[in-house]
Design a binder for these strands. Structure first.
Lengths: 341, 341
DNA sequence: CACGTCGGTGTAAACGATTCCACAAGGAGG
DNA sequence: CCTCCTTGTGGAATCGTTTACACCGACGTG
């Protein structure tokens, strides 16, 4: 593969001049510039990013460590992250942690070894020593979706409190009183926050959230299935099951279907995270939608700010309720309530 | 960040010795080894992969350029690719082409600039000059899922012929005679092959595939919607719509639903690519399932073979039919036909 | 006419690793 | 006792860039 030396030789100039042309440095004559460009084109020369990174100490690459690529929410997040990064002249390397802290560490380690310029993380757990070390060492980092309390890193996330309250109002209006939740891992903020928001909203209606109605899931479909089976085995099963993410909702749907029960007639179902498929499930599923694209873009901008020396602030965007038929009411054109006719 | 020099100084040895310890070269005394290890631990030293790559001319990184990350099929493929690569000691950088040739080129270019060791591509089109150049220049490459005829690169893919024949048999048995297909872009092999297989299977039953019943899609949901509307506007609309991928099936479902028609009573629907959500759509969708995980793993093995000097062969794995309710028959325990009672 | 100034250029030193080569010390064998 | 290996080690070159520094001619100005 042709190197800068070959180009210099072909153009009859020094490597310094070639480099200057390539980085369009002002002081280089039009004459040299055209000669170099011609040589570049002729040799099909492309600068070696590895060598450049070594010299400049920057890779123009961002690392993104997410909890689960198979989760459509994270896929969409990854996509918007890549788009915004590309617009800003950065590449993105994605690491899939699969909700396993040791895999998350593996990716953080290799990303750090590659000297990525900054790291976007949606932590799987409460923060491994490795991650904490990276923060302490000054690696530009931004948390997205989930975060770790007490760690001084900007967070870009959606706030579901309001939407959860609307959801509970919607459910209450439909006459549901026994509401259960399939929670995410307590070690993740999204895991615990969603339960807290749900519990708080229930309290406003004088409803309790008994232990029997809070199942422990892990954001994967299987756990949704398992927890739902537990709920259905109860002597007094819940009227509504709220899954804290879309995959657990899928599992819940599986379990409900396997018992020959119907949604929403026998059990109502709602989910956190909205995805295109929820329109087409039987029945369409009421969900809380996060502004995923905006989240990804904001996270990248915050990280790039940090990398380029500015000091980004945390960003919180509101999630919103999307009412469909899985809780009992016929779908409305918008989640806004209309006055009774 | 600590470099090998710092470690050498701390351990009181030369950088050469440190390097030897790190790459566990045989001739280094136990004494030096322990001293170096201690220094490494104390400084929290991690080798700079950029510098190492520059020197050794290998990055232990694979590039994966896929057509659309939001397509669950490719997401799953990407996941299995990363897993197998990791097992073999490689990292993966994913580029999302979004079915756009220029974006595909962008990713190939940056991947090449980074001097990745090999490239896994699912080409969006018939092959841009850039990609062809890369092949000619000897970049280790393997095509996965889609490929480019006439280019000498190993291909890892699924063969759907048999499954498509089974699908047509299934449809014929249910009494359907007017079958339509939403094709993928003709420039992609999967786009044209699936139509060809469908047409051939129809011919076996003495059925034709008129032009009006072959709609041109682009593997994205919107095109499925558009083509389906066209089909439904026909004076004699098809009884079955077969979508060449899962996203177009989603679009088709949208369009059918928007007209107030029901599946399978008014129109039957089938799709290429099976995904977890197809179990839960209304109705569950009959699909042709690819061995996605096996495909990803085989592709990585082929590419690594090529990188490490061996000469891999192409791999073709069979796809299989998964019968559900979207074509009219109640779901069977298995796609195997049982003899009439 | 001498003297800065300035645009354009080349030489060479980094960046952080790997690895070839030389060399010293010590033991084996003549 | 001298030579020859073997083992462990360090010096230095190298990978492909960027960039500080020096230099050189031309030009405008006093």
């Amino acid at each position: 593969m042709a190197s800068i030396k070959d180009v210099a030789a072909a153009a009859g100039v020094s490597v310094a001049t070639v480099s200057r042309v390539l980085n369009d440095h002002p002081s280089v004559s039009a004459e040299s510039r055209t000669r170099v460009m011609a040589a570049v084109a002729e040799l099909g020369y492309r600068p070696n990013a590895v060598a450049r990174s070594l010299r400049t100490d920057q890779t123009r690459t961002l690392g993104l460590v997410i909890s689960d690529v198979l989760n459509p929410y994270f896929t969409e997040l990854a996509r918007s992250v890549e788009e915004e990064a590309r617009a800003l002249g950065y590449s993105v390397i994605i690491g899939n942690a699969d909700e396993r802290p040791e895999l998350q560490d593996h990716h953080i380690r290799t990303l750090l070894d590659r000297r990525i310029d900054g790291l976007l993380v949606s932590p799987t757990d409460g923060g491994t020593p490795l991650m904490l070390d990276a923060v302490r060492a000054g690696t530009p980092m931004v948390f997205v979706d989930r975060w770790i309390p007490g760690v001084d890193v900007p967070v870009v996330r959606a706030d579901g409190h309001r939407a959860v309250r609307e959801l509970v109002a919607h459910l209450h209006r439909l006459g549901h009183r026994r509401l259960a939740i399939i929670a995410g891992p307590a070690a993740t903020t999204t895991g615990s926050e969603r339960v807290a928001a749900f519990r708080a909203a229930l309290a406003e209606y004088g409803l309790a959230l008994p232990d029997a109605y809070t199942g422990q899931g892990d954001f994967q479909a299987d756990s949704g299935r398992r927890v739902t089976e537990g709920f259905l085995d109860l002597s007094e099963p819940p009227e509504v099951i709220f899954a804290a993410d879309n995959l657990m909702a899928l599992g819940a749907l599986d379990a409900i279907r396997a018992r020959g029960l119907r949604v929403p007639d026998d059990v109502a179902l709602a989910a956190f995270d909205d995805i295109p498929w929820f329109v087409h499930t039987d029945p369409p599923i009421t969900a809380i939608a996060q502004p995923t694209g905006a989240l990804g873009r904001a996270a990248v901008r915050a990280l790039v700010d940090r990398i380029e020396g500015r000091t980004p602030a945390s960003v919180t965007l509101p999630a919103r309720l999307v009412v469909r038929r899985s809780c009992g009411e016929p779908s409305l054109p918008s989640p806004t309530r209309r006055s009774e006719p």
